Computed example of a mutant assay.
Amino acid sequence: MTKGEETKQFILEKAAPIFNTKGIAATAMSDIMEATKLSKGSMYVHFENKDVLACAAVDHNMKILGDKLIAQISKAKTAKEELYTYIEFFSNAVNPPLTGGCPLLNFGTEADDTNPVVKEKINKGIQLNQQLLENSITKGIANGEFKADWNAEDFATVIFAMMEGGHLMSRMSGNNDKMKVIIKTLKNLIEENSI
Rank of each mutant, 00 (worst) to 15 (best):
K3V: 15
G4E: 14
E5T: 04
K8D: 04
Q9T: 12
Q9E: 15
F10V: 01
I11T: 00
L12M: 05
E13P: 05
K14L: 06
A15L: 02
P17A: 05
I18H: 01
T21H: 03
T27N: 03
T27D: 05
M29D: 11
M29C: 11
M29S: 10
A35N: 04
A35E: 03
K37V: 00
K37E: 13
S39D: 06
G41Q: 03
M43L: 11
M43H: 05
M43C: 02
Y44W: 04
F47Y: 08
N49Y: 05
N49M: 04
D51F: 06
V52W: 03
C55D: 12
A57G: 00
V58N: 00
V58Y: 01
D59V: 03
H60Q: 12
H60E: 14
K63I: 14
I64C: 02
L65M: 13
G66C: 05
D67I: 09
K68E: 14
K68C: 00
Q72T: 13
Q72R: 13
S74P: 07
K75I: 10
A76D: 06
A76S: 10
T78E: 01
E82W: 02
L83H: 10
Y84K: 08
T85C: 05
T85A: 15
T85K: 08
E88F: 08
E88G: 02
F90L: 04
N95E: 13
P96Y: 07
P97F: 08
P97Y: 11
G100W: 11
C102R: 01
P103T: 06
F107A: 03
T109Q: 11
E110T: 02
A111D: 04
D112P: 01
D112N: 13
T114H: 00
N115I: 09
V118C: 04
V118S: 02
E120G: 13
E120D: 15
E120F: 13
E120Q: 15
I122H: 02
N123D: 13
K124H: 13
I126W: 12
Q127G: 12
L128W: 15
L128H: 13
Q130A: 10
Q131P: 00
Q131F: 10
L132H: 07
E134K: 15
N135E: 12
K139A: 06
G140F: 07
I141D: 03
A142V: 04
A142W: 02
E145A: 06
K147G: 08
K147I: 09
A148V: 14
N151H: 12
A152Y: 02
A152C: 12
E153D: 09
D154I: 14
T157L: 11
V158E: 06
V158M: 01
I159W: 00
A161V: 04
M163I: 15
G165V: 07
G166W: 00
R171W: 01
M172Y: 12
M172L: 15
M172A: 14
S173D: 12
D177L: 13
K178Y: 13
M179L: 04
K180G: 13
K180H: 06
K184L: 11
T185N: 14
T185G: 09
T185F: 15
L186A: 02
K187P: 04
N188W: 04
L189Y: 09
L189W: 01
I190D: 05
E192C: 12
